[in-house]
Every structure is written in C-alpha cells, then in structure tokens.
C-alpha cells in the first residue's frame, strides 16, 4: 500500500513539475475562467448580479470549461512523445497512473477555483464570508467527481481527432448530477441559511464514490489499444 501511495505521489509530483515548467495549462485555464465569469456577469445584467444567486451557477460554468481544458492538457503531456507508453511499460498498476493523473487534475482545479472564485465574489457581490467552509466542502465534493470522470474521458478521447469538443460533450452530461446537487446545496446554504448536509451531500458523495471506483476500474481497458 505504501508503495502504491509513493508511486501516485511520484506521478502527481511529475505532473505538477511539468506544469510548473511549461505554465501552459493553469495560465490558459485561469484566463478562461475569469473571462467566463466576467462575460456572464455582464450578460446577466445588474439585477441578477446584485441578487448574488447566479454566482454559484456562473462559477460552475467557469469550473466546467476550465476543468475540461485542464483534463485535456494534462493528458496531452502524456500523449506527446509517447510518454504514456513509458508509464505503461513501468512495473506499476494502470490504476496508479489514473490516480496520479486524477490528483494532478484535482490540484489544478483547486488552483483555478482559488483565482476565479474571488473574481466572482467581487463581480457578483457574493457574500462568501457567510459560509466559507460550507462553500469549500460543496465545491470539493463537486470537483472530486468531476475530476474523476474528466480524467477517465480525457484518456479515452486523447487519441481522437475531435478531442476538446468530444471531451466536453461526454463529460458535461455525466457531470450534471454533481452540478445540480452542488448548486442546489449552495442555494440552500446561502439563500436559506441551511447547513451543509442531508440528502444533497449524500447524493454528491455517492456520485463521487461511483465515478471514482468506475473510472479506476475502466482506466486500464481504455489504455489498451
């Protein structure tokens, strides 16, 4: 078990080091996320913006598009120069490759959120201070499931010519339960002042668990030519 954890840490460390050197993914994703928040904020008009209720939905749009770009870019690094074959030749389980990539994507998603969320807070006058930890918990729950399916499908479509378009087409519908569950919980949390928990959280965590386990199991099949 310790060896598996070390291997996953090694793969995640490599991904983050590659990103730190190239600065390709995070830069693009953050700019896209901010643009989405600003454009939607302007498009919705002052009344919607002032209500603050559209903020979580707009944030999810930014996270979804930014996330897809993350998944695509981190998998492209592996396809370039056949690096993925190098990993597949190594004496490690395919699930370890999946786990390493999943955690890397999750870290990048969190980095995206750390930049984009304050922009939405300012743009929408969204009072995050009312329940910052509840917000973080719900978003974390959404991100885990989203990164789980995103990592799996990014590997599946990375050799396809359609790539970006296809990945979004596949990942968005599958992520819908996560988005619905988390936006509903946000509404209850910020509009009604209800604490995080109950059926909403159970749905979110159940989808996270299902997506993670299924993706871990299916990843090996997807990698085989």
């Amino acid at each position: 078990m310790m060896q598996v954890i070390q291997q996953i840490a090694l793969l995640t460390g490599k991904d983050l080091r590659v990103e730190a050197r190239s600065r390709q993914t995070l830069g693009l994703v953050v700019v896209l996320g901010i643009l989405i928040v600003v454009v939607l904020g302007l498009g919705l008009g002052p009344q919607q913006v002032a209500s603050g209720q559209a903020a979580t939905a707009v944030l999810w749009v930014a996270y979804l598009f930014g996330g897809v770009l993350c998944f695509e870019k981190t998998m492209a690094v592996e396809r370039h120069d056949g690096a993925l074959a190098g990993l597949m030749l190594a004496p490690i389980d395919r699930g370890v490759i999946y786990a390493g990539k999943f955690i890397s994507n999750l870290v990048l998603m969190v980095a995206l959120a750390l930049v984009v969320t304050p922009v939405a807070v300012v743009m929408f006058g969204f009072d995050l201070s009312a329940a910052p930890w509840g917000f973080a918990l719900i978003m974390a729950g959404g991100f885990v499931g989203f990164a789980a399916v995103g990592t799996l499908f990014a590997a599946a479509v990375s050799s396809s010519r359609l790539q970006g378009g296809l990945l979004a087409m596949v990942v968005f519908p599958v992520s819908l339960p996560l988005v619905i569950a988390s936006t509903q919980m946000m509404l209850h949390l910020f509009r009604d002042g209800e604490p995080v928990g109950g059926a909403g959280l159970a749905v979110l965590l159940a989808f996270d668990a299902i997506y993670l386990v299924v993706s871990w199991l299916v990843f090996e099949v997807i990698l085989e030519p």
């Binding site: 080091r17 590659v18 690094v77 690096a83 074959a85």
Partner: peptide
C-alpha cells in the same frame, strides 16, 4: 507488472517529458 521491470524499450517515440 513484475515482468515489465525486466524489459526496456526504445520506441519510435522517446517516451520522455519535454519540459523536464
């Protein structure tokens, strides 16, 4: 996996990370 440790492959592609 255990057998893979005894193999080394030089392929068409270098299987390296360009940014490292």
């Amino acid at each position: 996996p255990a057998l893979r440790a005894r193999l080394g492959m030089i392929g068409h592609q270098p299987m390296l990370y360009r940014d490292l």
